Every structure is written in C-alpha cells, then in structure tokens.
Amino acid sequence: MSGFPLSRRDFDEIYGRVPRLCVEVVISGPAGVLLSRRDIEPCLGQWHLPGGTVFFGESLTAAVARVAARELGVSVAVGDLLGYIEYPFMAADGYRGWPIGIAFDATISSGQPVGSAEGSETGWFTEIPPDTIREQADFLNRLVRVPS
C-alpha cells in the first residue's frame, strides 16, 4: 500500500473493526459508464467503480480527484453527490471490513483512462456487466442513468 497513510497491518487492524469511509467515482457519458476490472483483492477480476478510502483531513471531493488520478490516470471535475453504497455482500464473502462508499458524479477534464495496478483494464458500458461488484451493480442499475 505504498503512498497510503497506513501500513497494510494497521489498515486491516483498524478497518476490521470500524466502518471505512470511501468515495466512488462515477464517470458517465455517451459511451456509458466507466468501470475498471480489479487486479487485486477484494473482488479480484470483477468490474467496479474506481474508489478508495478517504484519508484523515481530506475532503470528499479531494478524495474523488485523488482516486480518479491514481486509478484512472485522469483529472476530473467533481460533480453532484449521487448517493451511498454499503457492502454487505463483500462482508458476507469474507472481506474483512465494512466499506461505505459515497458516490460522486465526475467528468474527465484531462487525460485518457489508462487504469492502474489496482485495475489495468478499463471500459465504457451502456449496460452494467454481470461480473460487476454486486453492490455497485445494484447502485448503478438503480440510481445512475446509463445512456443507451
């Protein structure tokens, strides 16, 4: 977890006991919604919204911009708050922790999505793939209007 404020051990110890505040980056447009395929656990191999932990003292919008840069290689203009995502199925599948994601609309202001070590494959989808993290798929299908 290079570049993160906690070691992996501290991260697991803390977030195995308390909810973890995260942001989710929802970028959509005429080509659909932008997802990346996870190259790491949890949810290895599944499509997902780029997202991550909010650092202590970091605003939610700054976290959205940081996550978009780290996971997609793009700069974004952060838009509206779209809602929140809880992850009970991840917890039931044995993931240690209880992330709660605050989802924000975002628009790419510069760069092209290139992915990262966390998810190198990216794609635009007009329909949410069946192998998307379940809670995110439910959220996107319910709340985010994906252009068709």
Score class of each variant (00 low, 15 high):
69 A>V: 03
142 R>G: 13
44 L>K: 11
90 M>I: 00
66 R>W: 09
21 L>W: 12
115 G>F: 12
120 S>E: 13
98 W>D: 13
74 V>F: 00
111 G>I: 03
79 G>Y: 12
21 L>I: 12
95 Y>C: 06
59 S>L: 14
53 T>N: 08
59 S>H: 07
110 S>V: 02
74 V>G: 00
84 Y>R: 12
124 W>H: 09
1 M>T: 12
56 F>V: 11
47 W>R: 00
72 L>I: 07
73 G>I: 04
46 Q>T: 06
121 E>F: 01
35 L>H: 02
55 F>R: 08
87 Y>Q: 03
52 G>I: 03
43 C>F: 08
140 L>W: 04
61 T>N: 10
31 A>V: 08
63 A>R: 01
19 P>K: 07
22 C>N: 15
89 F>W: 12
134 R>A: 11
125 F>C: 01
103 A>E: 12
113 P>N: 09
53 T>K: 11
38 R>I: 05
122 T>P: 00
105 D>E: 13
28 S>I: 11
130 P>A: 15
69 A>H: 05
25 V>G: 01
125 F>L: 04
57 G>Y: 07
27 I>W: 05
46 Q>R: 07
96 R>L: 14
119 G>T: 06
27 I>P: 13
89 F>N: 07
79 G>Q: 10
135 E>G: 07
95 Y>S: 07
91 A>F: 02
3 G>Q: 08
122 T>Y: 00
127 E>K: 03
11 F>H: 13
35 L>R: 00
119 G>V: 10
100 I>H: 12
89 F>C: 04
108 I>F: 01
100 I>L: 15
137 A>Y: 02
79 G>H: 07
78 V>E: 11
148 S>K: 15
144 V>L: 02
15 Y>H: 14
1 M>W: 05
